[in-house]
Nucleic acid binder design. Structure first.
Lengths: 153, 153
DNA sequence: GTCGCTGCAAATTATTTGCAGCGTA
DNA sequence: TACGCTGCAAATAATTTGCAGCGAC
């Protein structure tokens, strides 16, 4: 589950370069937080990373971990698993369907697509487990937000 | 954005039937909460539903709305948009990829699939807006959890 | 009468923020 | 010196839970 040392180092370099380019300080804390995330494939949460980073920097605080992760995400250096954590939204439509989500205003639209429903998972997924359902989220700008942006820009 | 009266009534019947079958009381509050969700296509959150249901049942409390939604979801009468709201998990892998998620233990695995990356969105999505990215989550049971279940069941 | 459902208030959990000190450019 | 970064503690915000009364079967 852990990446090879070379791969981690490669990611560290990309990270350092991104910091330089974006004018973000690659502090000791941030480096360690990023490294800990880059080392693993288990998609850890903030608390888990905190626990691991603390082994190397015992004085680090959980807030710093949260702050760093948010910063990294904003800069596109890391990403989060799944949706962009707002409040939970519900849907009475229980027929098989997928969602279009506007990343600007949060609008959610349903759409149907048999091809996606029956999409055969790649072989590598078969090794992970058995797939029961396919959830697809298409993300972009809704019509309204596109117009707003056009006017604004 | 609102469903036709007939469609809402159809959903109400399905709901009532599901309650009967599953031994869940279809109380006044629950009916109104479900109806309010069934009426709309905007995928509202708990607070929004609370605000609307309160017009009909002014004394209802937000907790009841939360409780009802959770119950409905457990019984498969409704679903939630996006991921199953645990803590946010992060990923240092910024190459284009998708996720397999074990719904039992939460394991997340990466996989790559060019076909999904380039999947042409159906025409109905084009009417909603412009798609910038595709997020696919395959949900199921990981190997380990499959074995555990086999032994247990 | 029993038992589940509800409203109220308080608790929990994840995450964010204000502030003051510190280190580095 | 100036400014961003950090740790600490407190604040938020969403959601859950304990409890007691009420109502339906």
């Amino acid at each position: 589950m852990a990446l090879s040392k070379e791969n981690v180092e490669k990611r560290m370099e990309v990270f350092a370069e991104a910091c330089r380019r974006q004018g973000v300080k690659a502090t000791h804390q941030r480096m360690e937080i990023y490294r800990e995330l880059a080392r693993t494939e288990e998609h850890p949460d903030a608390e888990t990373l905190y626990g691991r980073v603390r082994k190397r920097i015992p004085s680090i605080s959980l807030d710093t971990v949260y702050r760093a992760l948010r910063l990294f995400e904003e800069r596109g250096v890391i990403s989060r698993v799944g949706s962009t954590r707002e409040r939970t939204r519900f849907d009475a439509n229980t027929t098989r369907h997928h969602h279009f989500v506007c990343t600007r205003c949060g609008l959610v639209g349903d759409f149907y697509c048999a091809e996606l429903d029956h999409f055969p998972p790649p072989a590598e997924v078969g090794a992970m487990g058995r797939v029961d359902s396919v959830y697809v989220e298409l993300r972009g700008f809704c019509r309204t937000c596109q117009q707003k942006r056009r006017k604004a820009g």
